[in-house]
């Protein structure tokens, strides 16, 4: 009986771990630019493309929901200069719904040409 309970508990914990971590997590190079608060609940940043257009840094990030349940993502980009200081006043937080197994691209443009780096701040809600 005890071993059965232990097995069930371990099984649940494995399920929770799978729900929290996508099977194919955010690639390390992209993860270095992501500041994730809390659990990803199956959402990963599949790709991030950073391009300087007309002397202004622009970014596109592909957010992928790897599970079948819908997810709500809150995100914003934080722009940094070459000293690591924040550029501008900071973006507003945005809410975005991600359907099950959906990939959605979010984009942003730096507020001025002094931005040389960025961080994607995000957290994921299960509902």
């Amino acid at each position: 009986m005890k071993s059965l309970l232990l097995a069930a508990t371990l099984g649940c914990m494995t399920c929770l771990a799978h729900a929290a971590q996508p099977a194919n997590p955010t690639p390390p190079a992209v993860a270095a630019k992501v500041a994730l608060r809390g659990e990803p609940y199956g959402v990963r940043v599949a790709e991030m493309r950073i391009v300087r257009k007309n002397d202004i840094l622009t970014v596109q990030a592909d957010l992928e929901n790897t599970v079948r349940a819908n997810r709500t993502v809150f995100y914003r980009f934080r722009w940094l200069d070459d000293m690591g200081n924040q550029v501008g006043d900071g973006e507003s937080w945005k809410q975005m719904g991600l359907y099950g197994l959906q990939l959605q691209t979010v984009k942003s443009v730096a507020p001025n040409s002094s931005a040389t780096d960025l961080k994607l701040e995000m957290n994921v809600e299960q509902k």
Binding site: K53, N54, I56, T58, E91, S92, K107, S108, V109, A110, P111
Partner: peptide, 10 residues
């Protein structure tokens, strides 16, 4: 944010 970003990147 959308409008300023779009204007600056063009």
């Amino acid at each position: 944010e959308k409008m300023t970003g779009s204007l600056l990147e063009t």
